[in-house]
């Protein structure tokens, strides 16, 4: 009994915090893919740049960790504005193959640049002492960092929900996801909306890379290493659906953690079983499908 309770609390806390990081780095792609139907395979690169920038600020410039997270997030958002205007704009109307080739090329460039600038090794974690400590929760020691990640994730979910539902920007975004030409016809500047949404998504990815690197260590191959899990979330949550992206991310985090915990050797496959079952349920027209 004790074993069961401690197992369940472990899976709840660690699975949810892992899911929150996955949510942060993939929500941007869920939004932009919903809006622009562009398969941005370089999305993970923004998360990697955010993480690298944050650690560099902490280790080289002795910046406060929380401040470094904010600076990294904003810098990547600004960088992505430039990249969107300069590069992505060209491919919106091109074929999927062109989009995939260009974005995967960008990811390769990022990997090579990170390798060149920071070396091939993993970047040491720069968590502040307060986050490395543990607190007693549900009868067990939990690392403060995990709770911090959950808090950041929840704050982002609430903020996004508010933006989507209560602001003109959110209303325009929802309209443009559903029907871009109609939204354009109704006087919404869809192109400007794209740019803002792209910057928002990239900034959130950078935030995920920066706060998540206690779980997803930073290395040059980061943009590819976590692409699969990002793609799983995007595929399962449907175009631009923020709420289901949050639910799916947490489900993925919990299923993955539980799988590894109960079946260590084969646990890595459990997540794919989950994906297959979930997609099968959708094909058969289960209620899950109507959500998106």
């Amino acid at each position: 009994m004790d074993y069961l309770v401690s197992s369940l609390t472990f899976i709840a806390i660690y699975g949810v915090s892992y899911g929150m990081v996955i949510f942060l780095i993939s929500i941007g792609l869920v939004i932009t893919m919903g809006l622009m139907r562009v398969i941005n395979l370089a999305h993970g690169a923004f998360a990697a740049i955010g993480g690298y920038l944050c650690t560099a600020l902490v280790s080289s410039y002795k910046l406060n960790f929380y401040l470094a997270v904010v600076v990294a997030t904003l810098s990547v958002a600004v960088l992505s504005l430039i990249v969107e205007r300069g590069i992505y704009r060209q491919i919106y109307r091109k074929s999927e193959l062109d989009q995939v080739l260009l974005t995967i090329g960008l990811a390769f460039i990022t990997v090579a640049s990170l390798n060149f600038l920071f070396g091939p090794n993993v970047v040491p974690s720069q968590l502040p002492a307060t986050l490395s400590g543990t607190v007693e929760l549900l009868g067990r020691d939990v690392q403060m960092y995990r709770l911090f990640v959950v808090a950041v994730g929840l704050a982002v979910v609430v903020a996004l929900w508010a933006i989507f539902n209560w602001t003109m920007f959110g209303a325009g975004l929802r309209a443009a996801v559903d029907n871009p030409s109609m939204a354009q016809a109704a006087g919404i500047d869809v192109s400007r909306l794209f740019t803002l949404a792209f910057a928002l998504g990239s900034g959130l990815a950078a935030l995920g890379g920066a706060v998540g690197y206690g779980m997803l260590p930073l290395e040059p191959l980061y943009p590819f290493k976590y692409l699969i899990i990002i793609m799983i979330v995007v595929a399962l949550s449907g175009f631009g659906n923020m709420r289901s992206a949050a639910a799916i991310s947490i489900a993925v985090g919990v299923v993955d953690t539980a799988g590894r915990y109960f079946f260590p050797t084969y646990g890595a496959f459990i997540i794919y079983v989950f994906v297959i079952l979930y997609l099968l349920a959708q094909i058969e027209g289960s209620p899950l499908r109507r959500k998106s």
Binding site: F10, Y14, Y18, M215, T257, Y261, P264
Partner: peptide
């Protein structure tokens, strides 16, 4: 990626 389950 996340080794917490093994540590647990």
């Amino acid at each position: 990626v996340d080794f917490a389950a093994f540590a647990e």
